[in-house]
Design a binder for these strands. Sequence first.
DNA 1: CTCACAAAGTTCTTATTTGGAACTTAAAAC
DNA 2: GTTTTAAGTTCCAAATAAGAACTTTGTGAG
Lengths: 112, 112
Amino acid sequence: MKWTDLDDNWCPVARTLSLVGDRWTLLILRDCFLGLSRFDQFVSSTGATRHLISDRLKRLVEAGILEKQVYSERPKRYEYVLTEKGHEFSPALVAFKDWGKKHLPVRRTTQS
Amino acid sequence: MKWTDLDDNWCPVARTLSLVGDRWTLLILRDCFLGLSRFDQFVSSTGATRHLISDRLKRLVEAGILEKQVYSERPKRYEYVLTEKGHEFSPALVAFKDWGKKHLPVRRTTQS
DNA sequence: CTCACAAAGTTCTTATTTGGAACTTAAAAC
DNA sequence: GTTTTAAGTTCCAAATAAGAACTTTGTGAG
């Protein structure tokens, strides 16, 4: 079964996952909550390929979670901002953050 | 960049995603919270292939989110149950559930 | 004018992951 | 003995992702 087939699953968790349930999508949403909004920002912040970012942003816009807004006429440029529907996703990211902070301490021994 | 490289990212959300940030893993966790615990239950409940379930369960056990418990000697059989660490993941799933219920109504027009 | 630069994508090829079905193992039930 | 059950594994084809280069539309410098 393909995961997109989950979109009309009886379970709301499954339906949500069919939309945002992949690593890069959720990372893009995290970035949005951190205030990022532009294509290249998502690329460098997440480390995903431009191809993936392009695809995921398209999906998020289609789903009404993000909205494309013009931030520059000539050259025409758009940025991506959270809609109300997108904002309401924050509890999920907060839950991820809390769990990660508690259970997955950074193991890098940086020589700062 | 591969998503597993996120495991020592500065961001706790990213670290969490490197572990559980894929559709099937989160769906398996949902099943655990619903009380399922056996291999074939996960297979039929999620619709993922046996291969994937096998891989994801292995990962979840390694991460200390699930625990293998013997439920039958001869034939030796194991079931998978949430650890404390796993239980603490519930806020995230609840957030997904709430969001899905509100924003992704089932669109199937079932004939009862 | 021409060259370099920037942002936001798109395209291309190669590598990795996933899907689906069949096979294995160990014991129980018929 | 043959079938059934649970929990995996293995195999190959198909889909998806990685990484780098290229495109488009315009700006600013020399």
